[in-house]
Design a protein around this nucleic acid. Structure first.
Lengths: 178, 178
DNA sequence: GTCTATACTGGGATAGAC
DNA sequence: GTCTATCCCAGTATAGAC
């Protein structure tokens, strides 16, 4: 059910997908879905929450210099996001369709992730490795740039994942370099 | 009507907004809207098309060196997007809700805009001013980074527009520098 | 655990009065 | 040009049979 909801939400948007469609994709009638979820909102919220919790659980800053930490972050971010383009899409596009309480939870998780990148940038700034006039702005700019890879990358295209990650890392490294 | 639709689509999403809501915002009954638009889809399409056409009409590359062209592009892009956060949001988020024919038109306009940035990067690469391993990737990365400013910038915040544009330009300049 | 059937609400769009 | 009224269809969610 979750896989079907994920696919349909990503393709058509949460508001445009009906419980009937999800049921058809699963191969049951709509009523049967309510054995597994209290409502459609919970389906969306749990997809987003689990996605962000996995993102946070999957990566910790290595015990290394800021530049090495940043490279690790960039390469992990790209790999993780390219592995889950549909979840990434939903987690960004469907924020408006969360109830206020659910939105607050998701925003908190997103903030936790941003804080990790900002901590790296601040450490590198203080160590003199980076020249970043504003670490918060740089955090937002870099995450937007990196996450954008999911909008254009296609498997089997001109560049493979390693090449893409290498080029992004090159741009990030130069952008924040002292 | 267009202003009301813009506001509501940006806040709740195209699929979640009803013609009745738009009518209420305008101060008429739903039926009256059909004097001005054939249907809800046209309302969305025209908002997006006019937005992108204005983006294209509003900027031409100045007759200057690639670095100066790039700076002009970056500052214009940020100014234009910060002036229209709702249109920017819709033009990206609601692509899925366009009919295939309308989607093709919007995609063409978007491509035209990307091509302008890519032309600058290619010229700078050939002139030896830039070191960009892949101009298409760099184009997508830079546009994602710059457009992301609309997701966090708030008027009256810690940084004003000029400061924000300056910091973004600094990151862009360094990211593509030879 | 899944189905059929349905309650209830609301959607887009149109007709015809004024 | 706008309103009221309505058509027809689809939505979420639930009840009760099997």
């Amino acid at each position: 059910m979750r896989a079907a909801a994920l696919r349909l939400f990503a393709r058509h948007g949460f508001a445009a997908v009906s419980m009937r469609q999800i049921a058809a994709e699963v191969g049951v009638q709509a009523g049967a879905l309510y054995l597994y979820t209290p409502d459609k909102q919970a389906l969306l919220f749990e997809l987003m929450r689990d996605h962000l919790e996995e993102l946070l659980a999957d990566w910790r800053a290595p015990d290394a210099a800021p530049v090495a930490q940043l490279e690790d972050f960039v390469r992990h971010h790209i790999r993780f996001h390219l592995d889950r383009p549909e979840l990434v899409f939903i987690a960004y596009m469907e924020l408006r369709n969360l109830t206020p309480e659910n939105f607050a939870v998701i925003e908190g998780l997103r903030r936790d992730y941003e804080d990790r990148l900002e901590a790296i940038l601040r450490a590198g700034q203080q160590a003199g490795d980076f020249a970043v006039p504003d670490t918060k702005l740089a955090t937002m700019a870099l995450i937007a740039m990196l996450t954008g890879v999911t909008t254009w990358y296609r498997e089997g295209g001109r560049l493979d994942r390693a090449a893409v990650a290498g080029i992004y890392w090159d741009m990030v490294r130069k952008a924040v370099a002292a």
